[in-house]
Design a protein around this nucleic acid. Sequence first.
DNA 1: GCGTCCAGGTCTACC
DNA 2: GGTAGACCTGGACGC
Length: 314
Amino acid sequence: MRNNIHNRFYISVPADFNFWRTVYSHGWSSLKPFSVDKENQSLDRLLELNNNKLMYARINSSNSGKLRVDCQTKQTLNESEKEELVRQIKNCLRMGENFQEFYTIVKKDKEFSWVYDLKAGRLLRSPTVFEDIVKLICTTNCSWSLTEVMVNNLTTKLGKKFLLNEGAGISKELFSFPTPRAIASVDEKYLRSEIRAGYRAPYLLELAKRVESGEINLESWKNDQLSTGELFKMATSIKGVGPYAAGNLLKLLGHYDHLAIDSWCRTKYFEMHKAGRKVSDRSIEKFYSSYGKWRGLFFWMDVTKAWYKQKFPF
DNA sequence: GCGTCCAGGTCTACC
DNA sequence: GGTAGACCTGGACGC
């Protein structure tokens, strides 16, 4: 077996950044190609550079406060490739986003000051907007376990393979998230039978083809100049993306003025604020309206509050 | 073992 | 613009 090239480097983090609370900010860390190694307390993932080189990264929070990144590649990385790797990691962990205004509000609010104390609030995202949208479509109208099945199938059946050296001659197969081209290259029948995407199959196929053809440039959606309204309209123009998926996508793009209420959040809200009694979505919207453009993030932090009492909430 | 319900919703037809 | 019904899948639950 050919040995991989090992590299270790460190990334400085913002003062208000908490690595572990970002990893466990929502369910993305348990969807492939992300994985959490609880023993090593690391976020692991196979990344793909723009030039298609694959790279395994194990990310830990080091004693110095910096992130420690241990990576494995097949070929030596040049400086620009290392820079791209760092950019991808910072992008996933939302390290370039300014949360000063959000923290100024939460630290004055007795119900939410814990968010400031824990430096919580950053929501883990994928390296590409395409991956986030595919995963969001896979969360709709199904159990979380089925979402895991669909994403796992997409990754292992349509992603690129990488052999990770685990030492003592042992290796493990890892897969990257499939590119738009890889998904566009199969048909609806395959997505139904092999990926188990069900009625979502035509949605995934259409999205992949639109991205692959250049009809839509999803990465441009990270542009700060786009308003929430514009982004919401663009997101819901994608088949399979309704108010819930669009609202959550906007949060991953740094816009927090949609609550993105789903059945899980509804139930949590009813338990926490209404002793289990059901109320309308409009009533939930009203409850968080005073938090203005940050209300979607306040809502999410509120319904996931219990997660922050544990090192490994799931 | 089998049937039913529903889960981290969305689309389309119809009014 | 609002609403009902259909849509894949698979786990949980009751019988």
